[in-house]
Nucleic acid binder design. Structure first.
Length: 258
DNA sequence: TTGCATGTTCCGGA
DNA sequence: GTCCGGAACATGCA
């Protein structure tokens, strides 16, 4: 699930539970730990308190009075709050216990996972492979980014090193809102189209962040894209789809012509 | 059994 | 250097 809005929702979960000491870390499946083992993780966090968490793109950083825990959710990761006696889910991989409850990192496929940074500087450095966050990029930088790339628009929007936070669903949703075909070469877009894309990005992100996910409304592409008989919410036209490098791209052939 | 899934990385080839 | 596609990672579901 996780794209920028989902990770933002996980950030809120974490933000509600800062300030209480971490009483212990239970690793139920070390397969989600990257470059750190269960013992070192527990030693680094036990007795510490989480400070204000922050998000960049799809990454979540949780400072803990020195060390910084970083979450990268892959396709199936999540972070949720539970009471101690809540039955664990089979995909709960790491449990961070606090006094009045616990945070659970759940992840079915374990494609990415949790890292431990020694300090703020290292945490900051770990973000250096990412472009500007999609909620913060200025219009001018967005324009320049599109103008300089000859690859497909969809590829640019989902390139985390160029623009951080957009995934498969969001990129298609934004292109649909802007009425621009995602397979067009990015640098071929004219000013109006770039403006429409930027506006669509802001609007889609604002509403998705509010919902904590890309909302599957019937009036949005996301609400209909997975139906076998899916038609464009604006027209009664069957949606077009194409697989590109293992992901399905969906668009409306009428409002987003090639 | 096969194909697909909202992420990312690595590799080869154009 | 840029761009693309394919395979891989690990797991479940239709």
């Amino acid at each position: 699930m996780p794209e920028l809005p989902d990770v933002e929702a996980f950030r809120r979960v974490l933000a509600e539970h800062t300030g209480d000491p971490i009483t212990g870390v239970r690793v139920r499946d070390p397969g989600v730990l990257r470059d750190v083992g269960p013992r070192r993780l527990d030693r680094a966090l036990r007795g510490h308190r989480f400070g204000t968490p922050r998000r960049h793109g799809k990454r979540l950083l949780a400072p803990a009075e020195g060390p910084v825990l970083t979450f990268h959710f892959g396709m199936t990761g999540s972070l949720s709050w539970h009471s101690h006696d809540d039955e664990p889910h089979p995909h709960d991989r790491v449990v961070l216990s606090l006094e009045d409850g616990e945070l659970r990192y759940r992840d079915m496929r374990k494609l990415q996972g949790i890292r431990l940074m020694e300090n703020e500087a290292e945490a900051e450095e770990s973000l250096s492979d990412l472009g500007p966050d999609a909620t913060e990029i200025p219009r001018g930088d967005f324009d320049a980014l599109l103008a300089r790339r000859r690859g497909r628009l969809k590829t640019v929007l989902t390139d985390q090193s160029a623009l951080a936070g957009l995934g498969n669903l969001l990129a298609d949703e934004i292109c649909w809102h802007a009425r621009v075909n995602p397979l067009r070469p990015a640098r071929d877009l004219d000013d109006d189209e770039r403006a429409a894309l930027y506006r669509a990005m802001r609007r889609v992100l604002r509403e998705s962040v509010k919902a904590g996910r890309v909302p599957p409304r019937r009036s949005w592409l996301t609400g209909v894209r997975d139906r076998p008989d899916g038609t464009c919410p604006r027209h009664d036209v069957p949606l077009s789809r194409e697989r590109m490098s293992g992901r399905t791209t969906v668009w409306c052939p009428r409002c987003q012509p090639r």
